[in-house]
């Protein structure tokens, strides 16, 4: 499996919701070779990140677009639909980070479970799109979720396609922990064997010692770094320069965000092996 050195950052500046500023931030993120950009973070979410990642989809080329979703102010049916659409529009570059943000304990976990069950209600090969026979889809591949959690009851199926990624890349943040054991990425303040995700990224600043990070990466304790940005245009080039050697020595794979970063769909989270396939029309 691909083992790239992953570069991640978060922007919580309210100006990210202003188009002129957002355009410059996204260009800087792509220019820096950032793998993941979190829109908002625990303690800083002055916008609806799900809306901003939609705008960012056609305004960015490569960076993974991670929406910070508050369990206290969202519903899994809406979230599942919004992120499915963003994943198609971004060509498989979508992620999400669910934070409690004041919600009752267990709500965030319930949101993850409910949204996953909705995405899994659509098979990878549901669409047929055959104009000649008039068959648009294979109904046997569509299932009602009948999800029942402590906070959310969602019948499904959802009126949104299974995402290209199967499920968006799920990011955990140890600043706002949730009890999920099969996430894709964990943002950690110190390397731990029990972060709850396929890969851990160490939270760093521009003062972090690169040698320390390189040693942790070489030992397999972390898979890259994450930085919370306060001045994105100034900090992004510096972040990229600081870790340029690690990134160059450990490139990502080809394809969508999961393929590039080496993040298979969690078998515990999905009853489907793949993301959605869109048939080509002659």
């Amino acid at each position: 499996m691909t083992r790239p050195f992953i570069l991640s950052a978060a922007i919580a500046d309210p100006e990210l919701a202003v188009p002129e500023t957002a355009a410059t931030y996204l260009a800087a993120a792509d220019e820096a070779g950032l793998d993941l950009l979190l829109f908002g973070e625990a303690g800083g979410r002055p916008f609806d990140a799900q809306v901003l990642v939609a705008w960012a989809a056609p305004r960015s080329q490569r960076v993974g677009l991670v929406a910070t979703v508050p369990a206290s102010n969202a519903h899994p049916f809406h979230v599942a639909r919004a992120l499915s659409a963003v994943d198609f529009l971004s060509g498989g570059r979508t992620g999400w980070s669910v934070i409690p943000e004041g919600a009752a304990e267990g709500t965030a976990e319930d949101m993850v479970g409910a949204a996953r069950s909705l995405w899994d209600g659509w098979g990878s090969d549901t669409l047929i799109l055959d104009k000649a026979s008039g068959r648009y889809l294979d109904a046997s591949k569509v299932k009602a979720s009948n999800y029942e959690g402590p906070f959310f009851k969602v019948t499904g199926p959802v009126n949104a396609m299974r995402p290209l990624l199967g499920q968006p890349v799920l990011v955990l943040d140890d600043a706002a922990p949730i009890a999920i054991k099969d996430a894709d990425i964990a943002l950690v303040s110190e390397a731990t064997a029990d972060a709850g995700a396929t890969k851990s990224l160490l939270k760093v600043t521009l003062d972090t010692k690169v040698e320390d990070v390189a040693a942790l990466f070489a030992d397999g304790k972390i898979e890259g770094v994450h930085m919370s940005l306060s001045d994105p245009l100034a900090e992004l080039p510096k972040l990229a320069a600081l870790f340029a050697e690690q990134v160059a020595a450990n490139p990502g794979g080809e394809g969508d965000l999961r393929a590039r970063l080496g993040l298979p769909l969690a078998s515990t989270a999905s009853n489907q092996p793949d993301g959605a396939k869109i048939p080509e029309i002659a």
Partner: peptide, 13 residues
């Protein structure tokens, strides 16, 4: 099986 669906989330589009 013959109707064009599902559509994607309109606010996102």
């Amino acid at each position: 099986e013959r109707m064009a669906m599902p559509t994607l989330d309109p606010m996102t589009l």
